[in-house]
C-alpha cells in the first residue's frame, strides 16, 4: 500500500497521486478548484447546449462550470472528473475556455520527483500542461489544463475533455508506479511478511 511517500511532510495524510486522484471527485471540484481565476459569473448556455449535443453525461457545478466524469472501466466508480469552464477568456485575440482536471490535492510540499515528472510530461504533450495551484494554508492542487476555442463544436469540447481525462489517467498510473519504485528502493530488506514500519497509513481524502 502506498503510504505518505508522496510528501516530504508526513503529517499530510495522503497516499500519493495514485490514491487520492481517486477521491478528487465532484465535491472537491465544486469547492475551490478553479486555477486562480475569478468565479464564473454564470453558466454559458451555449456550452450547456454543446455538451448536451455531444451526448456527454454531465453535471452543473455551483460555479456555473460543468463536470464530465470519465471512467476507465465499469468498476471505476469515481472516475476522472473533468471540469469544463463556462467562463470565456480572451487571450492573444482568441476567445477560449479552459478544461481541466484536478488529479490531486494536499498540504505541504510535493515530492520533487513528482514535480520533475510533471515538467517533463509537459515537455512532451502536444496540448495542455500540468500545473500546481497553491492555496491558503499550504494547500495545493495538482491539475492538468487545456484551452479550447470558446465556440468549439460539441464534439471538440467533449473530445478535449476526454483527452484531459486520458492524460490524467496515464499520469496517475505513471506516478503511482514511480512512487512504488521509490518506496521499494528505500525499504530496508526485511522479512516481507513483517508489518510495515510505523509510518501512518495513507488515508484517501474524503
Amino acid at each position: 500500500m502506498l503510504r505518505c511517500a508522496f510528501y516530504k511532510n508526513r503529517v499530510v495524510m495522503m497516499a500519493g497521486l495514485a490514491l487520492f486522484a481517486l477521491v478528487s471527485g465532484g465535491p472537491v471540484i465544486a469547492q475551490a478548484t478553479q486555477p486562480a481565476a475569478a468565479p464564473s459569473p454564470g453558466v454559458d448556455e451555449s456550452l450547456r447546449a454543446a455538451l448536451t449535443e455531444s451526448g456527454a453525461s454531465f453535471e452543473e457545478l455551483p460555479s456555473g462550470d460543468f463536470l464530465v466524469r470519465f471512467r476507465q472501466n465499469p468498476e471505476d466508480a469515481q472516475g476522472m472528473p473533468v471540469v469544463v469552464r463556462s467562463r470565456r477568456l480572451t487571450i492573444a485575440g482568441q476567445e477560449l475556455r479552459n478544461i481541466f482536471v484536478v488529479l490531486a490535492r494536499g498540504t505541504g510540499g510535493i515530492r520533487q520527483s513528482v514535480i520533475n515528472q510533471l515538467m517533463v510530461t509537459n515537455g512532451s504533450l502536444p496540448v495542455g500542461g500540468w500545473g500546481v495551484e497553491r492555496l491558503a494554508e499550504g494547500r495545493f492542487l495538482v491539475l492538468f489544463k487545456v484551452a479550447v476555442p470558446a465556440d468549439a463544436p460539441p464534439a471538440v469540447v467533449y473530445g478535449m475533455a476526454q483527452y484531459v481525462a486520458q492524460v490524467a489517467f496515464r499520469q496517475r498510473a505513471q506516478i503511482a508506479a514511480m512512487l512504488q519504485a521509490e518506496q521499494a528502493a528505500t525499504q530496508p530488506a526485511t522479512d516481507p511478511a513483517a508489518e510495515p514500519a510505523d509510518e501512518p497509513a495513507a488515508e484517501p481524502e474524503e
Binding site: N98, Q112, G129, G131, V132, R134, A147
Partner: peptide, 22 residues
C-alpha cells in the same frame, strides 16, 4: 527545483500555454 516549482505555479495560472522541460 525552485524553477520547476515556479513554472508549475505559472502553468496553473496561465489560461493558455504551459512550461515544460525537454
Amino acid at each position: 527545483e525552485s524553477v520547476k516549482d515556479h513554472l508549475l505555479l505559472l502553468n496553473a495560472r496561465m489560461p493558455m500555454g504551459a512550461w515544460g522541460i525537454d
